[in-house]
Design a protein around this nucleic acid. Structure first.
Length: 208
DNA sequence: ATTAGGATCTTCT
DNA sequence: GAAGATCCTAATG
C-alpha cells in the first residue's frame, strides 16, 4: 500500500484507493483488481465498525499498525478484506468492496464458477476475496513490501472527477454516514442494498 | 427485473 | 442465543 496512505484516517484514504491495484500472488497464480468501490470504517467513532466496541480476537489486526490486511469471516462462508489505516490503537480501516480484474482473469473465473459476467467477478466484498483467493491466511499480511503475497500499488489513472460517495451497504447502524466511495458509472460496482435483518426461522407452534 | 429464503458458523451478548 | 460490513438460486411479475 502506497506510503502516502499511512497514518491517515480511513475516510481520507478510502477515495484515494479507488483506481489502485490489489494483487494477490498465491500458489495457484496471480490475480489483480483495480479497486472501484470501498467503504471507510472509523473505529471508536463509528458504531458500524468492528472495532467500535474495542479490541477482540477477531479485530486485533485493525488495532495494529497501518498497511496490513484485516480479513474476517462472515455469514458462515464468506471472507472480506480491509486495509488498516492509522497507527496502532486507532482502529480505522477501508473495506475493499469491488474491483475490475486486471490480471489473472482466467484464474479468477475458475474460482468463481457462478459468476455470469466478467463484471461480476469481484463486484462485492466476498466476491472480491473469492476471485483473489483471499482467506484468513492473509489476515495480518503487510501489503506494503514489494514481494509480499498481497500488495496494493498506486495508479496513474485519476478518478478525481468521477468519485461518488453515499451510505454504506449492509449495516444496521450509522446508516446515514456517507462513507462508501465508488467510481461513477463503473459496471463492477456492487449494487446498493439497505440492510435487512435476517428473519428468524419461524418457531413451529407447540401442539395443544 | 425483483424478491424471498437458504446456506452456514464465528463472534459477542 | 442471535445477528451478521454476503451471495446464490428459485420463484414470481
Amino acid at each position: 500500500m502506497p506510503r502516502e496512505f499511512y497514518d491517515r484516517p480511513a475516510i481520507e484514504v478510502a477515495p484515494e484507493l479507488l483506481g489502485c491495484v490489489l494483487w494477490h500472488q498465491s500458489s495457484d497464480g496471480l490475480v489483480a483488481v483495480e479497486l472501484t468501490e470501498v467503504e471507510a470504517y472509523m473505529g471508536a467513532i463509528d458504531s458500524a465498525s468492528h472495532s467500535y466496541r474495542g479490541q477482540t480476537r477477531r479485530n486485533a489486526v485493525m488495532f495494529g499498525p497501518p498497511g496490513h490486511a484485516y480479513v474476517y469471516f462472515t455469514y458462515g462462508m464468506h471472507f472480506c478484506v480491509n486495509l488498516v489505516c492509522q497507527p496502532a490503537g486507532i482502529a480505522t480501516a477501508v473495506l475493499l468492496r469491488a474491483g475490475r480484474i486486471v490480471a489473472g482473469e482466467e484464474l479468477a473465473r475458475s474460482r468463481r464458477p457462478s459468476s455470469r459476467r466478467d463484471t461480476d467477478l469481484a463486484s462485492g466484498p466476498a466476491r472480491l476475496c473469492q476471485a483473489l483467493g483471499i482467506d484468513m491466511a492473509q489476515n495480518g499480511v503487510d501489503v506494503c513490501p514489494v514481494g509480499s503475497e498481497l500488495l496494493v500499488t498506486s495508479t496513474t489513472d485519476s478518478y478525481d472527477n468521477k468519485i461518488c460517495q453515499g451510505p454504506r451497504v449492509g449495516i444496521s447502524s450509522a446508516t446515514d454516514l456517507p462513507w462508501r466511495y465508488w467510481i461513477d458509472g463503473d459496471p463492477t460496482v456492487s449494487a446498493y442494498r439497505a440492510h435487512v435483518p435476517r428473519r428468524r426461522k419461524p418457531v413451529t407452534p407447540s401442539p395443544r
